[in-house]
């Protein structure tokens, strides 16, 4: 038996984890940009729709980004499925009794939060990008779509749940990526952990705030142009 020295990067478990990490970081980066863009909803329909138009104004940028994202998702999903299959083959029989010592809930549920997010992405695209899943879709009015979409209670709830799942997925994923890429040391580990947690918490909080704001009426469909009527008797 002589072990092969030639690298078999993409077949190896280490290489596959690098793929997971790199694609994961790309997708993580996208969620941050996506979140920052969407926050403009709070600036009113004009700003928000202008932003939406801007995104679609340069087709090469749009389709380039979409292609990168699509490939990343594809690789991320395919590799995850492969790794899960390997893990299943590595332990064909589960323990009769199992107690976890350190594995976080997030880390143990990556293969639940992951597929949920995949379904969410499909729904999200049908909901806000193509409109098939949107009852009142108007092609050029992102603001309208946004607010009417989230006015539906179950949709808002579903988004909030999925964002929480995203949070779980990212908290473990972002930190895990630093390990898979070999960047983690005793000294950098706390930094990576802090960054992963901080960004994820901000991201999820911001994302969740939007459907809630719609439901709460903070973000409204028709923002009156005049000064709002004075509410009497509150003071």
């Amino acid at each position: 038996m002589t072990a092969i020295a030639a690298p078999r990067f993409l077949q190896s478990t280490v290489g596959k984890k690098v793929v997971m990490a790199v694609t994961g970081i790309i997708l993580f980066g996208f969620t941050i940009v996506h979140m920052l863009g969407n926050l403009q909803i709070y600036l009113g329909p004009a700003k928000f729709n202008a932003y939406a138009h801007f995104l679609k104004s340069v087709p090469s940028l749009l389709w380039g980004t979409r292609a990168i994202l699509f490939i990343s998702v594809l690789l991320h999903v395919v590799t995850a499925v492969q790794l899960t299959a390997l893990a299943g083959a590595a332990r064909p029989r589960a323990y009769s009794f199992r107690r976890w010592r350190s594995a976080s809930y997030a880390s143990r549920t990556m293969m639940l939060s992951g597929p949920l997010l995949a379904l969410f992405v499909v729904y999200h695209l049908l909901h806000f990008t193509t409109g098939q899943a949107h009852p009142h879709f108007i092609k050029q009015d992102a603001y309208w779509n946004f607010v009417t979409g989230f006015k539906v209670v179950w949709t808002a709830v579903a988004y909030v749940v999925c964002m929480l799942a995203l949070g779980l997925h990212l908290i473990h994923g972002a930190y895990s990526a630093s390990q898979s890429l070999g960047l983690r040391t005793a000294r950098t580990a706390p930094v990576f952990k802090l960054v992963a947690y901080a960004i994820t918490i901000v991201l999820v909080a911001a994302n969740i705030s939007m459907p809630i704001a719609v439901q709460a009426g903070v973000i409204k469909l028709h923002v009156p142009t005049e000064v709002p009527p004075v509410v009497v008797g509150v003071r």
Binding site: I4, V14, K16, K17, L83, A87, A89, W100, A103, S107
Partner: peptide, 17 residues
Amino acid sequence: VNQMDAEGFGGCTNVGE
């Protein structure tokens, strides 16, 4: 790593168990 993979061990998901 090649040998480890050939033996049929799974990949690491950084859970820390």
